[in-house]
């Protein structure tokens, strides 16, 4: 069994996250969106759409822009890079990303991640 840092919160079975889709989870009082891309990679971002303030990003359409896996906000359609949280339509905007790991078929969300 892989060693896991203590701050990881188990969220759901990885199969509960649709391929190229997302779900929302409550992690330490914050809404976190968990996505899976086409190739099965798992990402975790804040669920709050920074343009509307609504907690909805997990309900966006997952796809690609160029090489980047993205989710587009269901509210006003801006695209966010799943890897970094960067908004690809507004360079000044970025959503928080979280550490995420799949352990024994369960998605675990960790602390917020610093992005260089």
């Amino acid at each position: 069994m892989t060693a896991v840092a203590v701050s990881l919160t188990p969220v759901c079975a990885v199969d509960a996250v649709p391929l190229e889709g997302g779900v929302a989870a409550l992690v330490d009082g914050s809404a976190v969106a968990v996505f899976r891309s086409f190739d099965g990679e798992v990402f975790a971002l804040s669920n709050v759409d920074p343009f509307s303030g609504a907690s909805v990003l997990s309900r966006g359409i997952v796809g690609s822009r160029g090489d980047a896996p993205v989710v587009s906000s269901p509210m006003y359609k801006q695209a966010f890079d799943l890897r970094t949280g960067a908004c690809l339509d507004d360079a000044t905007v970025r959503v928080t990303t979280y550490d995420v790991a799949v352990v024994d078929g369960v998605v675990h969300v960790g602390p917020t991640r610093e992005v260089a």
Binding site: E20, G60, I61, G63, S64, G66, V70, S72
Partner: peptide, 10 residues
């Protein structure tokens, strides 16, 4: 090409 977006998927 690619994995689609909020335009082509709907």
């Amino acid at each position: 090409t690619g994995r689609g977006c909020d335009v082509c998927k709907p």
